[in-house]
Design a protein around this nucleic acid. Structure first.
Length: 344
DNA sequence: CGTCCACTGGAAGCCGTGGCGC
DNA sequence: GCGCCACGGCTTCCAGTGGACG
């Protein structure tokens, strides 16, 4: 059944990107000067989750790496590395020694090491809206050899990190927007993956349509469902993937994502989530806090719990409705359509 | 309609941590 | 070994906002 599992991994970058040609060309035009020794344009990639932003960015990095040997590239996931220190460490990793860098190394030291880099350096900041620090982007942009590609599904909160100077710089840069994939495109993406990963004939078009439909435009989710369905078919020793493999794979993929999101939280944040998960029809902020204090041995303050609630929302684990005293918090149900809302 | 009050989120300051220089 | 410093996580304080209620 599965001949090359790697192709079904979320971070697999295909040899050729076939469904994002205009976007791909736009980005490559912006970045091409790096390969030619010139000054590239600033680039920003926006679009909802699973729309291929990361794939597009990684692909473009690979293309430029293949053209030029004396160029550094790096892909930084700002969700995993949201603190300035972590981002700088990741950025230094391919270009400078980092063994003597520790948690308390001054930011200036790290920045000046980045400034000392002699070759062009192309870095993708994925989920750049997660960068907590508005100053960091400005500092990074002042480094001459460093070209940044910012990737975000939340343009609003990203622009909150811009000061006026950065904003005008980005207005003149290149903005690549990736819309959610249509059903047909998603089927076609799944088809290419299936051909690369599975035995010929292992899955038919109606089954791919079923998966694409459940994924609602999100390629990452679609591929995750296909991977799980293929695994089930293999365990069944079935020659082809059918509905009995796909049906359970759909909620499984959603739960897997939810589980991964929950694991990024600390114990207190998970306790707050548990409070919301237990409350039917949403919970008022006051009730959330009171219930939370019952659940943990040494509760944090209300203010901190408010930050936790904000974090749950940014992880798409919870939503808030109403303003002021009418405020209510709810968990995002994984089976509901808004489980993966198309963020602006 | 005006007042009250719950809630929000920014700002500033505290504190524990852990490497560094002396 | 000791004080220093930067940092992240947290608390404290507070101004602003908007729904609820008399």
């Amino acid at each position: 059944m599965i001949t090359n599992a790697r192709v079904l991994q979320a971070d697999w970058v295909p040899r050729e990107i076939v469904h994002r040609n205009p976007e791909k060309n736009l980005l490559q035009t912006a970045l091409q000067p790096v390969a030619d020794g010139g000054r590239p344009e600033d680039a920003l990639i926006t679009g909802p989750s699973g729309a291929g932003k990361t794939c597009l960015a990684r692909y473009s990095l690979q293309q430029i790496e293949e053209e030029r040997l004396d160029i550094h590239t790096k892909h930084v996931d700002c969700w995993a590395a949201s603190k300035p220190f972590r981002v700088l460490l990741e950025l230094l990793d391919p270009v400078a020694p980092t063994h003597d860098i520790h948690r308390t190394t001054a930011r200036d030291t790290m920045l000046s090491r980045l400034r000392d880099v002699d070759a062009p350096y192309l870095a993708v900041l994925d989920e750049a809206d997660q960068l907590g620090d508005p100053g960091l982007l400005g500092e990074l942009y002042s480094i001459p050899k460093l070209t940044l590609v910012l990737v975000t599904n939340d343009e609003q909160s990203l622009s909150g990190l811009f000061d006026e100077r950065l904003r005008s710089r980005f207005r003149s840069g290149v903005h690549v927007h990736c819309d959610s994939y249509s059903l047909d495109t998603l089927v076609s993406i799944l088809d290419r993956r299936a051909r690369g990963a599975l035995e010929p004939g292992a899955v038919e078009r109606p089954q791919l349509e079923r998966i694409a439909d459940a994924a609602a435009g999100d390629a990452r989710r679609a591929i995750s469902i296909l991977r799980r369905a293929a695994r089930r078919a293999m365990d069944d020793e079935a020659g082809v993937i059918d509905g009995s493999h796909i049906t359970p794979a759909i909620p499984e993929a959603a739960r897997e994502q939810r589980q991964a999101d929950l694991e990024r939280l600390n114990d207190h944040q998970r306790a707050v989530y548990a409070v919301l998960a237990n409350a039917d029809g949403g919970a008022a902020p006051k009730a959330v806090y009171e219930e939370y204090t019952q659940r943990v041995s040494s509760p944090k303050t209300k203010r901190t719990v408010r930050d936790y609630l904000g974090k749950l929302q940014s992880y798409n684990l919870a939503t808030a409705t109403g303003e002021g005293p009418a405020r209510r918090y709810h968990v995002v149900e994984i089976d509901s359509p808004e489980a993966e809302p198309a963020a602006e």
